[in-house]
Design a protein around this nucleic acid. Structure first.
Length: 932
RNA sequence: GCCCGGGUGGCGAAAUCGGUAGACGCAGCAGACUCAAAAUCUGCCGCCGCGAGGUGUGUCGGUUCGAGUCCGACCCCGGGCACCA
């Protein structure tokens, strides 16, 4: 009987489906374990071999935990809203719901092939009204709440209103400290109860909007007039649209935001409670970008307006040689001099065409002097005010004081524009490079002279505050999250506008369903497509939709209780499942999804809807599987293709140049091209190709790059499952390398894993003799192999080292084959160990051995030390750190015994060359080193 | 530019706490079985060298009896940078 994986896998997949083997109950009779994969977007391109990597890892872990006695929640669903479906709708007129549905069916078929243990009864789709009803509901909770800074918790805004009615906002200052209420002729930062009570509804609502956790404001977007639409950053290249190459400018639009900045400190603190990699914590910490320093007002010569800067180094205030302000600040026109006006306006126009990313990535120094001068409040020095794209309006005050002797970027700017540099740190500054030290003694610094910079920091802030020209200030690089898109395919906001006031819909009106549209084209003035629907606008409904991350910010909660029509998730159920114990996904979500979902969880926790405030206990980041592209080389201007080995290092064939052309990796075996397949490729595009071969073969070139359809280097898991089976595919994906690491795909290597499974099979079945397993008693050697394997697989699985786990199985099977071990006692336990990795073959052989229950719930073998103890070790013996020989020495040996044995060795004596040893280093169970 | 990660044979990798570098597999080479092929099995397989031996984990330097692993500087590649998801 041979290993017929196709029949076996089909049979067990059907059986597991029929018996609901993967149904998970919310009954609290076992300890729980929640394993989650990052929410996939069901793309039209289908799965390539890179996608299932994380799913296989989580599937192995889920199955492993189940065998260890846990009730394991391992769900899957779809982040089904998104731009690609909408773009497809614009291009082909197909409704996004239709194309998305088709993609999901395809996705599901592909996933099913691989044999995952998902409980599909819990599937969710963000675009399903039954799901987005609750996304809208949570949005309303955000809208109706504010962060009470006194308690640090999200709180219903009705409580804030009650407080305002009693005492105004003296204890609850505006989260945005630049905001002022316009009341009559006054601009108020604080108001009294009387004032509040006298405000009209519009003013009150405008004030409340400043506190809400989901709020409406204005923000800049990439606006493309020609396409009439807002573009994502990566759709803008060098100031023009990727599609069509039309000009793109920054434009202010009304937008919804999440006040995530109010949670900045808690998002930072929470990182201490979660098991994320240090790199991940660092990325989130840097993204939040907490810094402390001061805001300082500088007078501008000849103007009433003050220039307010934020600095983390108030101690360097006497080293300020120029100011740089963001080109988009609207008052530049007021202060620039007439001589500089044209230059300033040109520069502002240039910057407007640049995306933020381009501005930050720009190596070339650029900027323009405004003609204005700020006055140093301590020594009266006149400081030229420049504008430059490297200062962004959104961070701090959008203006910096530049200290070239202490800051590298300021230094290069000063050098580039010949601005004289003041040295306030004496010998710490060499005139060649800036020195950002905090340990210098200050010079040329007025009242700070002679102070260490660290002390001076406090002294300077105090002086600034006393003078009334600034305040101590904590700043965050993180900005409030833009939460609206001018698109169709997203959740509608449950918001109605009347006279400029946003009213929430009643919860009974949810879900607010996405209406049908005639066209997916944007509405007037950059509004979303919903603005084109008369029935929609007649009700004054919000025309923006929510962004992709709305639905994915809470989906892990819905999986717990997916069919609940009364609540987003029952509290008792969420208390049982609690945090996601293991979350697997890519680092590309490091600062987006992970921060947003952490914030939502904290809000729901504050409002008492769930009992935990960090969604993910442990996070494992999976690496990318890269594509390995193949190239053929065509002699320029001909249809002749030259085999790779015949080209010189510059890609030339003799004197003739060649063009490298990517070819579909699926008809290249290793590096050898299937020439007839190539000729029929792309509708016989290369039908007339002629080949110049080496050794009768056409050898392709290769290069590692991102796996993508356009590079013809995608490999479809379906093909591999068909050829080798799901078990082989699963194990091979794991065998490629550590889950966390990126690595290129190589289809050839899968043969090795397939051979291993066939070899496992042959421990049970012989081609001629049939079943060969026996009930004989296992030998010590066999038990040793088994128990070493148990220990190894356990440790490897626990630390997510699935690649070494697979090697562990290979070693076990190799050793058992060498021992000719066909004993049920050993093999049966090996099968249970393998179940998480290769469930189909494990179940088949388990049943063949005569077991009745499913191996999915078998009892997990227990490691016993006594089977693996050793009495001696083969020690490496080094002389001066170089290994010269090995010797088997008892593990009980002490230092004196070891010295005697080692010095008696001929090889050691030879290397001692008659000299006596200075020292003998003996590390038990490790090594021995003789120092001469 | 800024932040994070990674560089080990021809290739994917292993080395879990500073202790035998290259486990396991792919590819390759030699052989067995076979009319032949596939499948399977056996052996070899970092580089230089006939060998003794030397050398080797991106580069340069350091710490240590001992460094892939720790420290410093640099080079290259990948991911993210706020409207792709």
């Amino acid at each position: 009987m041979e290993y017929n994986f196709r029949d076996i896998e089909k049979k067990w997949q059907q059986t597991w489906k029929d018996t609901n083997a993967y149904r998970v109950s919310n009954k609290r009779d076992k300890p729980k374990y929640y394993v989650l994969d990052m929410f996939p977007y069901p793309s039209g391109a289908g799965l390539h071999v890179g996608h299932p990597l994380g799913y296989i890892a989580s599937d192995i872990f889920a199955r492993y935990k189940r065998l260890k006695g846990f009730n394991v929640l391992h769900p899957m669903g779809y982040d089904a809203f998104g731009l690609p479906a909408e773009q497809y709708a614009i291009d082909h007129g197909i409704h996004p719901a239709v194309s998305t549905h088709a993609n999901i069916i395809n996705f599901r078929t592909q996933l099913d092939n691989i044999g995952f243990c998902f409980d599909w009864e819990r599937e969710v789709r963000t675009s399903d009204p039954g799901y987005y009803k609750w996304t809208q509901w949570i949005f309303l909770q955000l809208f109706k709440s504010f962060l009470n800074r006194q308690t640090g918790k999200a709180t219903p805004i009705t409580e804030l209103v009650a407080t305002f009615e009693k005492e105004g906002n003296k204890n609850h200052p505006f989260p945005n400290d630049k905001f002022r209420v316009e009341a009559g002729s006054e601009s108020l930062a604080t108001f009294t109860a009387d004032q509040w009570n006298s405000f009209n509804e519009f003013t009150r609502e405008s004030i409340l909007m400043e506190y809400r956790l989901a709020y409406c404001g204005y923000g800049e977007v990439n606006w493309c007039e020609a396409l009439g639409t807002v573009l994502a950053n990566d759709e803008v290249i060098n100031g023009v649209s990727e599609r069509g190459g039309y000009p793109v400018v920054r434009k202010k639009l009304r937008q919804w935001y999440l006040r995530i900045t109010e949670y900045a400190d808690r998002l930072l603190d929470g990182l201490q409670q979660v098991d994320f990699s240090d790199a991940m914590k660092e990325m989130q910490t840097n993204w939040i970008g907490k810094s402390s320093g001061a805001e300082i007002d500088f007078a501008i010569k000849g103007h009433d307006r003050k220039l307010r800067v934020y600095t983390t180094r108030p101690d360097t205030i006497f080293g300020v040689d120029f100011m740089v302000i963001a080109p988009e600040l609207d008052w530049i026109g007021e202060v620039r001099s007439d001589e500089q006006a044209a230059e300033v306006d040109d520069y502002i126009a240039y910057v407007k065409s640049r995306s933020e990313r381009e501005r930050m990535a720009e190596k070339k120094i650029s900027g323009v002097f405004t003609g204005a001068y700020a006055i140093n409040p301590f020594d009266g020095r006149e400081i030229p005010v420049w504008i430059s794209e490297y200062v962004l309006a959104g961070y701090g005050t959008g203006a910096i004081m530049a200290v070239p002797c202490g800051d590298e970027r300021d230094f290069r700017f000063a050098k580039h524009f010949n601005i004289p540099i003041t040295n306030i740190i004496g010998s710490h500054f060499n005139g060649e490079d800036a020195n950002p030290t905090k340990d210098a003694i200050l010079e040329n610094s007025g009242f700070l002279n002679g102070l260490n910079m660290r002390e001076a920091m406090e002294v300077a802030i105090k002086a600034i505050e006393e003078k009334g020209i600034g305040t101590r200030k904590v700043n965050y690089k993180m900005r409030d999250a833009a939460f609206s898109r001018q698109r169709y395919w997203g959740e509608p906001f449950p918001i109605r506008w009347e006279n400029g006031i946003a009213y929430p819909l009643d919860e009974s009106q949810l879900p607010l369903q996405l209406p049908e549209v005639e066209s997916y084209k944007p509405g007037p003035e950059g509004e979303g497509p919903l603005a084109n629907i008369p029935e929609w606008t007649a009700q004054h409904l919000e025309t923006n939709t929510m962004p992709g991350y709305a639905g994915s910010s809470w989906y892990f909660l819905r999986y717990m209780d997916p069919h609940n029509e009364k609540e987003f998730c029952n509290r008792e159920v969420s208390d049982y499942w609690g945090q996601v114990d293991l979350y697997i996904g890519g680092t590309e979500h490091a600062v987006g999804h992970l921060l947003y979902s952490r914030m939502w969880t904290k809000v729901l926790y504050d409002l008492g809807y769930i009992g935990h405030e960090e969604p993910y206990k442990k996070l494992v980041n999976q690496g990318m599987i890269q594509g390995s592209s193949r190239f053929v080389y065509r002699l320029t201007g001909t249809n002749q293709f030259v085999s790779k080995g015949l080209l010189d290092s510059e890609g030339k064939y003799g004197l003739q140049s060649t063009d490298a052309i990517r070819v579909d990796v699926n008809f290249v075996d290793g590096v050898e091209l299937d020439m007839s397949a190539f000729k029929t490729w792309r509708n016989n595009e290369y039908a007339n190709a002629e080949f110049i071969l080496e050794d009768g073969k056409y050898i392709c070139g290769m290069e590692v790059e991102k796996m993508s359809k356009s590079k013809f280097n995608t490999v479809n898991p379906d093909d591999l499952v068909h050829r080798y089976g799901a078990d082989t595919f699963r194990m091979y994906e794991m065998f490629l390398g550590p889950v966390e690491m990126s690595k290129p795909w190589d289809t050839k290597g899968i043969e090795g894993v397939h051979r291993f499974l066939k070899k496992l099979w042959r421990l049970f079945f012989d081609e001629i003799k049939g079943a060969i397993w026996t009930n004989e008693k296992a030998t010590d050697a066999e038990l040793k192999v088994l128990h070493n394997t148990i220990r190894r697989i356990d440790a490897d699985t626990e630390r997510f080292s699935f690649n070494t786990g697979v090697s562990g199985f290979m070693i076990a099977v190799n050793e058992l084959s060498d021992l000719k071990c066909n004993k049920k006692e050993i093999l049966e336990k090996l099968l249970v160990l393998m179940t998480p990795y290769a469930p189909h073959i494990a179940e088949e052989l388990w049943k063949q051995l005569g077991n009745t229950g499913s191996i999915l719930d078998a009892s997990y073998p227990v490691f016993e030390e006594k089977y693996v103890v050793e009495s001696a070790k083969e020690y490496p013996i080094s002389v001066n750190g170089k290994v010269r020989t090995t010797m088997s020495i008892s593990l009980d040996a002490d230092q004196a015994q070891v010295e005697e044995i080692v010095l008696g060795n001929d090889v050691v004596q030879k290397w001692l060359e008659g000299k006596g040893p200075k020292k003998i280093i003996y590390v038990k169970n490790k090594m021995i080193n003789v120092v001469v």
